[in-house]
Design a protein around this nucleic acid. Structure first.
Lengths: 196, 196
DNA sequence: CTGATCCCTTGACCTGGATCAAGGTCATTT
DNA sequence: AAATGACCTTGATCCAGGTCAAGGGATCAG
């Protein structure tokens, strides 16, 4: 299997590619972590200590409300980042959970290490800015859709935009991500498949 | 009245404060623009050309759906930023509108100028990264609330967190921002005020 | 002063989606 | 191989919030 760090460095090639020095700094300041299915990278009440890059597997980030119902905020597949940025930067306890939906391999960068990378190698500032801008734009569009479209339209859009997730992730979690109950999602699916 | 650029520079003091050189560069690479009530900073189909900082006034960013219904995505008051980042960076046509709800004064930074600032003065990369991270965290929380709370709870939270907006902005726009109809928001308000 | 616009409210009725309950199928554990 | 638990489905019923329609008070332009 390929070296996880190679995968991460290749990922940065999509932005401003890293040079040798930066690659080495990144290698030294990050660590590989393996999670088994249903393992937690973060639990409510803890400070989110790692900015995590998914090398392999699938994770979800969610909040649990007073009634114990979970609300999925984000999924992360291979080559995606997952972190509670608020908790991570403020070093305050998080209200979120990050859980592996499959056995997963992630690369973790801790707070002090990321600060080091930011200040010693400004390219990281740039790259992480662009990465989060992209995520921000996606989240804005999702917010708009949440307010402007029906559950059926949101689900159709999700399946179209994220076929890999639709195939790998249980419907319960997709329902929660879309903001509907699993029962209703089930009805939606049976309706649309009957349409064909 | 105070120089708008002063206000912008002061705003950056909340992050990594700018030195003389950076302040001058910023002044040279930005421009002040005044909008009258109902004036547009961006209209659907145009490329979003300015990263805008509100010096005075109040703006909203929204999308219009096929039926002509508007969906508010964001408000911006004094000392806040407003831009369709997706359109701005990709230099692609936007699907959004940015409209002044009051006579407003904004400072605009155009695409080429911001790139210049980013590359010549890395502190801007840093500061804009932090600014957008903060906005991202807020948007995540809003998304969670949208899926986890009732309209009544969301409205109560909005009034509590944004009293200035609740006072300055017509209810139609707040309703759209919260994802409910103006009629229903009106009922919510009359219910809660009767509670006292 | 006088229409136009906005903007808000209230009523009557309707519907998308929630809730509750039950049963069914796998896959994992023991 | 039985038992547990995760996941999906379907039915019956309910309700938060939408839709449509009408009226009324501000505010602003001519």
């Amino acid at each position: 299997m390929i070296d996880p760090h190679e995968i991460l460095c290749t990922h940065f090639d999509r932005y401003l590619a890293l040079d040798e020095v930066e690659r080495n700094a990144l290698r030294e300041r990050s660590s590989v972590r393996r999670l088994k299915k249903r393992g937690f990278l973060l639990q409510e009440g803890e400070v989110c200590k790692s900015y995590a890059f998914v090398v392999e597997g699938c994770l979800r980030m969610y909040e649990m409300d007073e009634k114990g119902v979970e609300h999925n905020l984000q999924f992360a597949l291979e080559n995606e980042w997952i972190v509670d940025i608020g908790s991570f930067h403020a070093e305050k306890p998080s209200s979120l959970f990050i859980e592996a939906l499959e056995p997963s391999t992630v690369i973790c960068i801790e707070h002090a290490d990321l600060l080091y990378l930011y200040t010693e190698h400004p390219k990281f500032d740039r790259n992480f800015r662009v990465i989060i801008e992209d995520q921000f734009v996606e989240l804005q569009q999702r917010m708009l859709r949440r307010n402007a479209s029906s559950a059926e339209q949101r689900h159709a859009h999700f399946v179209e935009q994220h076929p890999a997730l639709a195939a790998r992730v249980p419907n319960v979690h997709i329902a929660s991500y879309l903001g509907v109950t699993p029962e209703f999602l089930s009805r939606l699916k049976s309706k649309t498949s009957k349409g064909r």
